[in-house]
Amino acid sequence: MKERAEVPVGSEIPELRRVVTREDVVAYAEVSGDRNPLHVDDDFARSVGFPGVIAHGMFTMGHMAAAVTAWAGDPGVVGSIAAQFREPVFPGDTIVAGGRVRSVDPDEGVIALETWVALERDGRVGWAVKKGSARVRLA
């Protein structure tokens, strides 16, 4: 597990990149229990104004949390995590989670991170999550 002495303010956590597939979205609907047809039924998604199914916001946030967890070394040290969702993510899009150390409390071992999830589609880069944050407690 990472220790607080290793994390200078301003340092970045390793990027975590994945292509979101239709299978990922179906698997997430199953495991989370969020079976909103917007995520699994193209006809329904089109009927409410999207070109097709969109990934769950919480899939994107789960990916962001995975980046923080991989960096911290243990999911149990994550004290908080938050995200504001921006653009919808479609199957075929690439999401890239990242983060930066904002502050380190040397007494409590609490590290505050700003986090984000970039969105890549057809050579264009946007934001699935532009403003995210997390707090982890390191030994």
């Binding site: 990922d24 698997a27 495991v31 989370s32 229990g33 789960g62 949390a65 923080v68």
Partner: peptide, 20 residues
Amino acid sequence: AAFRDLFGIDHGVPPTFVTA
């Protein structure tokens, strides 16, 4: 375990598992 597999987390309870 299914949540961990989906997000590539190898131990513990993934932070956003509570979504379920």
